[in-house]
């Protein structure tokens, strides 16, 4: 079974949700404690949601300096698959693994509710099995999720196909920027998630791992988790999954 590492910081709180979703998708979920520099043979890494180190200074700003994140950075540099969800997105953005920054929600309040997102590309390791259904209904739960980058960066992201997820209305049309409740945090160009230029690191604010079972209101996120597990398995079989010094297996 393909091993998928899930980074656990003190303060991570969707780690168990993520581990479970990976297991449901057929992967072997491996918890990776923040002090470890080993990724334990993982073929892909998820940085889950929560409040890493309490998020006291700014979301994700301390977590990026942890031993495990140094290892994740090296893994990503060698084309390893990394997915950051919510606080995990904030952490990988702080670490410079994906472009942009996450600012406080425009409403200045924490928001926990279901939103609709559309997948902009289905040819990525994170979305290949998630189509063609749109839009997806998935929960959000964050206070700092307003995606921000300068116009030049945003234009480049659009041009290069790096906008991976966008907030949309329930009919699939793209949500507005400010004042549209369907863009819950006021993200620029309604961006809910992005992918790096190399195509191996992605982050998003909504929680696909909490939308993997119809019983809990939606299984629209399962395709994203399955895509990751399948892509990691393929990378492993084809010898593309990076092996870091000190790795087990």
């Amino acid at each position: 079974m393909t091993r998928i590492g899930v980074v656990i910081f003190p303060g991570s709180n969707r780690d168990r949700d993520t581990l479970r979703a990976i297991e449901l998708a057929g992967g072997e979920a491996v918890p990776l404690w923040h002090e470890t520099a080993s990724l334990e043979g993982s073929a892909a890494i998820v940085v889950p949601g929560g409040f890493a180190y309490g998020d006291y200074l700014r979301a994700g700003v301390i977590a990026r300096f942890s031993p495990v994140m140094r290892a994740v950075g090296a893994f990503a540099e060698r084309d390893g698959l990394v997915l950051g969800i919510c606080n995990g997105f904030q952490v990988i953005a702080e670490a410079g693994l994906v472009p942009g920054a996450l600012l406080r929600n425009r409403g200045l309040r924490f928001l926990g509710r279901d939103v609709h997102i559309a997948i902009e590309r289905f040819d990525t390791p994170f979305t290949m099995l998630a189509g063609p259904r749109r839009p997806l209904r998935v929960p959000i739960a964050h206070g700092e999720g307003c995606y921000f980058a300068d116009d030049v960066t945003l234009d480049a992201l659009e041009r290069d196909g790096q906008v991976l997820f966008r907030y949309v209305h329930d009919d699939g049309s793209v949500a507005g920027e400010a004042g549209d409740p369907d863009n819950p945090n006021g993200s620029l160009r309604a961006i809910a998630g992005v992918i790096n230029a190399a195509g191996n690191v992605a982050g998003l604010m909504p929680h696909p791992e909490c939308a993997v079972e119809a019983l809990l209101g939606s299984d629209d996120g399962f395709g994203i988790i399955r895509s990751l597990v399948e892509s990691a398995g393929a990378a492993e079989r084809e010898g593309r999954a990076p092996r870091l010094a000190g790795s087990a297996a």
């Binding site: 709180n13 949700d17 979703a21 309040r109 924490f110 926990g112 739960a141 791992e209 809990l216 209101g217």
Partner: peptide, 16 residues
């Protein structure tokens, strides 16, 4: 009020 709370963490909430 409710939407200022995280009601889905732990992935066991059957209803909102």
């Amino acid at each position: 009020v409710f939407e200022q709370y995280d009601s889905t963490v732990q992935a066991n909430s059957v209803v909102r």
